[in-house]
Design a protein around this nucleic acid. Structure first.
Length: 137
DNA sequence: GCCAACGTTGGC
DNA sequence: GCCAACGTTGGC
């Protein structure tokens, strides 16, 4: 199983909306590296939901529910979307500040490539962030 | 194919 | 609101 982190601005599409919807489409990604990551996702992979801009914290855990398919919001046919399902909310959201303060998370893509909206997470990083967020890994 | 100008993301 | 980092565009 692979682990990921996906960012969304909560005032555009936030965790509570995904929970209410029970399932969501992760679309609108327009960055080649993020696209490559989307294309590597398999059903059953886990992903953190990160609130960018407002909150700046990991607020929950999701599961990939459908592998990549053409993004319906994209006319060019170049970009892809995946479907996600919420699994569990963070009991104590893991903030960017806390993640940056943890030396073992120095190499995390969230820290190193701040602008990448879909990023891989290593198993070690996954465990640590889960612990910080009060999530079952 | 290079690179300057410009646009966007996202933290602060 | 600012700006650093980075991606994209377009002239050459």
């Amino acid at each position: 199983m692979n682990y990921w982190l996906m960012k969304s601005e909560p005032d555009v599409y936030g965790w509570p909306k995904l929970v209410a919807d029970k399932r969501g489409r992760w679309d609108g990604v327009r960055n080649p590296i993020a696209r490559r990551n989307l294309m590597h996702m398999k059903v059953g992979d886990r992903a953190f939901f990160y609130h960018s801009n407002i909150g700046k914290e990991v607020v929950g855990m999701m599961e990939i529910a459908r592998e990549h398919y053409p993004d319906p919001t994209d006319k060019t046919g170049k970009w892809v979307a995946v479907d996600v399902k919420p699994l569990a909310p963070a009991k104590t959201p893991a903030t960017l500040a806390a993640i940056k303060a943890e030396p073992r998370l120095k190499e995390m893509a969230l820290v190193r490539y701040a602008r990448l909206s879909v990023q891989p997470v290593t198993p070690a990083e996954w465990k640590l962030v889960c612990r910080m967020a009060g999530l079952e890994p």
